[in-house]
């Protein structure tokens, strides 16, 4: 393959230099903006309590339950097979929680917290920003499917601004992926019986 040689004039050299400098500054500004967005998203995820339910709890050094950061935001662990939920007596108590704080039983059935890591198969890997925003705004899975169940605070989170949701999504896409297939929610026992 022939390689042609050319020589730039001093003005051309200055122009090329300006172009490279401009591109570098623009790239750096873009990266800084992206970093800011991720940092903002991390702040929102941390202060909005996402880890409380989406990061499994495990006994810490003192035996007290604490978030297991090796599985940060990966949802209900697929390895934790749960028995049927306890049947509560009539009265004011309405909800029970698994020891991982990732599964909840109530009148709606049993809900499992989602894998929010960017794992391609089991997390948000294939989700688009639009899928994420539609989910939070509508309270439906992917904005189009089944309803998102308690205790996910959709009624409050749907008031996040578009910028907040974009930042949260950018952060969630930046964290380490964890392969963990969260089960689908269990309908109430009566509904399952009707299915059989």
């Amino acid at each position: 393959m022939a390689i042609s040689k050319s020589r730039l004039s001093p003005a051309g050299t200055r122009g090329l230099g300006a172009m490279i400098l401009g591109t570098t500054i623009a790239c750096a500004a873009g990266l800084a903006f992206a970093d800011e967005k991720v940092a903002r998203g991390k702040y929102l995820v941390t202060t909005s309590g996402c880890n409380d339910c989406h990061t499994p709890w495990a006994p810490g050094p003192t035996g007290e339950p604490e978030p297991d950061w090796t599985r940060m935001l990966s949802g209900h662990p697929e390895t934790v097979q749960l028995p049927p939920p306890p049947v509560l007596p009539a009265g004011p108590w309405a909800m029970t929680s698994a020891e991982t704080n990732t599964a909840f039983s109530g009148p709606w059935g049993v809900s499992f917290t989602a894998n929010l890591t960017p794992d391609e198969e089991t997390g948000l890997g294939r989700w688009t920003l639009r899928n994420f925003v539609d989910t939070i705004r509508s309270g439906r899975h992917l904005g189009r499917g089944r309803v998102i169940l308690p205790p996910m605070p959709i009624p409050m989170y749907k008031h996040f601004t578009d910028e907040d949701l974009e930042a949260i999504f950018a952060y969630l896409k930046s964290i380490p992926p964890v392969r963990n297939q969260v089960p689908e929610p269990w309908p109430p026992a009566a509904a399952v019986t009707a299915l059989q």
């Binding site: 709606w108 059935g109 439906r140 189009r144 499917g145 089944r146 309803v147 169940l149 689908e184 929610p185 269990w186 309908p187 509904a191 009707a194 299915l195």
Partner: peptide, 16 residues
């Protein structure tokens, strides 16, 4: 078939 027959909000298809 199972999901088309159900009208429980967690199972039904179409979902709405």
């Amino acid at each position: 078939v199972l999901r088309m027959r159900s009208r429980h909000p967690l199972m039904q298809m179409p979902p709405l």
